Simulated scan of single mutants.
Amino acid sequence: MTEREPFRTQIKVRHYELDSLGHVNHAVYHSYAEVARLEAMEKAAGDRDGLRAENLAVVLLESHIVYRRELRAGDVVEVTCEIEFGDGKIFHVTNEIFKLDGTLSAEIRCTLGLMDLERRKLLDDPRGRFERAGIDLKILTTSD
């Protein structure tokens, strides 16, 4: 069996994302992770809009970051995105932000849920609901 790589996207650090110390503002790292999550979900959905058709949306419940190395203006980073499903209503997304030389800049782990937008409640079995909505989980997770 071949091991799959997590989803990756590249982002260039912009000057306006810097703080007074000259490196990327702490909140921007979270934005980079959000870009990767949204791009991964878009790719996994393809032309289908199964979640929206069911009036469902992914919601962020918690986010934790560990900063490893600073990022500066002009750096280009690769941001990974991998979903881990478990039992119950929540799932986790891990993002790693790497400089192009392979240096790990930050690790982000988020807890998410799938919300019924009409009832405003989290739903059980998000993995199954993604599958039924036509989401390609091979893009979102490296595990089977």
Rank of each mutant, 00 (worst) to 15 (best):
C110P: 11
G128N: 03
E131G: 05
D124W: 06
V76I: 13
K121L: 10
K89S: 14
L51A: 06
V66K: 14
L104D: 08
L100D: 00
K89H: 13
V79A: 07
E42P: 02
V93E: 11
V66C: 13
A33M: 05
E34W: 03
K121R: 14
L122Y: 01
L104R: 08
A133Q: 00
V93P: 06
D47W: 13
L114A: 08
R72F: 12
L104M: 12
P126G: 10
R52Y: 11
E118V: 10
A40K: 02
S63L: 05
A57H: 09
G128W: 00
A106V: 04
G134H: 08
Y67F: 03
A133S: 08
I83S: 03
F91R: 06
T103G: 10
I90A: 15
M115F: 00
D125A: 07
A33D: 07
V79K: 09
L122T: 03
E42K: 15
G50D: 02
R69P: 03
A45C: 15
N55V: 06
G113P: 00
D136K: 05
L112C: 10
F85Y: 10
A57V: 08
L137R: 00
I65Y: 05
E82Y: 11
D75R: 02
D87F: 15
V58R: 09
I90F: 15
L140K: 04
K43H: 10
E96C: 12
G128H: 05
G50Y: 03
E78Y: 12
C110A: 15
I139Y: 04
F130A: 00
G113D: 04
Y67E: 09
L100T: 07
L71Y: 03
T103N: 11
E96Q: 15
I65N: 07
E84K: 14
G88W: 08
S105F: 09
A73H: 15
A133K: 01
L140A: 03
E54R: 04
H92R: 12
E131M: 14
K89P: 10
F91Q: 11
F130I: 04
P126E: 12
L51S: 10
V77L: 12
F85H: 08
A133Y: 01
R120L: 08
L56W: 00
I139C: 02
F130M: 02
E54A: 14
E82C: 13
D136F: 02
E39R: 09
A33Y: 00
E118H: 07
P126L: 07
D116M: 01
D116R: 00
E54V: 06
R52L: 10
M115Q: 11
A45I: 13
V66R: 14
E42R: 15
T80R: 08
K138R: 13
A73N: 15
T141A: 08
I135P: 03
L71E: 05
R52F: 04
M41D: 03
R52H: 09
S105E: 10
R129G: 05
K138A: 12
R132T: 13
R132N: 10
S63D: 09
L112H: 12
D101R: 09
K99E: 04
A57G: 14
A133R: 01
A40D: 00
V93I: 09
L123M: 07
E70P: 01
A53E: 15
P126A: 08
